[in-house]
Simulated assay, not measured.
Amino acid sequence: MSNLAVPANRRKVYLEMALRRCRPGRGSSLAFLQSRTWNHPVTDLRTIIQTPFVIVGGIATRLYMPERMTDDLDILIWAENSDRIYGELEQAGSQRVGALNIGGSTWQLSDGTILDVLEFEQAWIADAIAYPNFSPDGLPVIALPYLVLMKLQASRSQDLADISRMLGGADEEMLNSVRSVIGIYLSDALEDLESLIALGQLEMGN
């Protein structure tokens, strides 16, 4: 298995290169980097799902950084609620497409939307689902500390870039909330987290 198959190793390689090459300044305007929009509506899952969930992934980042176009609609649920939510999806006319290798499955909703349902069992899931933020149209979106946690656990290049940009515009109170969650659930990533914060703040000109 390649060393880069391990998330912590991917972070190290990404951060070493980024910190070596990064310079203060922005490739986009400060107004753009500070913008928070929800211009591309997504399916209102509340009309077909009663099981508690939160939106995660690229769409969730809209609350914490400039919106980028993505067709991926991802939600997070307690693994023990999978049978319940899948029953609701089937009742709404959704079709199961296949399994996710990280746990969960992909579905096609009746309106054609592709939905990834992530099933996790970690201890933090309860708080992540119980205390969401909300989109302008009222959908539950995972809070920033837990979104950062998920992206650190995955540590793909896009995940790390998202973390840097989201945290570059966060205030100190929010940064401390993120540090607290990572310290509890992924403490070996704290040093990498600080590097990602520094990269994000460099982009913002801080």
Rank of each mutant, 00 (worst) to 15 (best):
W38P: 09
E173T: 11
N206Q: 13
R46Q: 12
I59N: 15
S177G: 09
G87C: 06
P132N: 15
G27F: 02
L89C: 04
G104D: 05
L196G: 15
P145F: 00
A126N: 08
A99N: 10
G169A: 14
V54S: 05
D137T: 12
V13K: 12
E90Y: 00
V178K: 01
W78I: 12
S180A: 08
R179F: 00
T37K: 12
E119K: 03
V178S: 06
I75T: 13
P66D: 04
N9A: 13
G205E: 04
E172D: 13
E16D: 15
I197N: 15
V148E: 10
R23D: 06
G200Q: 09
I77K: 11
Y14K: 06
Q91D: 11
T47C: 08
F32G: 07
I197G: 15
Y146S: 11
G27M: 07
T43F: 02
L186G: 10
R68K: 15
S135I: 04
L202M: 15
V117A: 13
L30P: 03
R96F: 04
R10W: 00
D116L: 00
E172A: 14
A198N: 11
G58E: 07
N206A: 14
P145R: 03
L199D: 13
I77R: 12
G103Q: 08
Q91S: 14
Y146N: 11
R179Y: 00
L175Q: 11
V13D: 08
Y131K: 11
E191Y: 05
E88T: 10
S177F: 00
T47S: 15
L33K: 10
L160T: 03
S94Q: 03
N101G: 10
Y64K: 14
N133L: 03
C22A: 09
I129Q: 05
G87V: 02
M174L: 12
Y131D: 14
N176K: 09
V56E: 04
E173Q: 09
V117C: 12
Q95C: 07
I163Q: 11
A60H: 06
P136N: 09
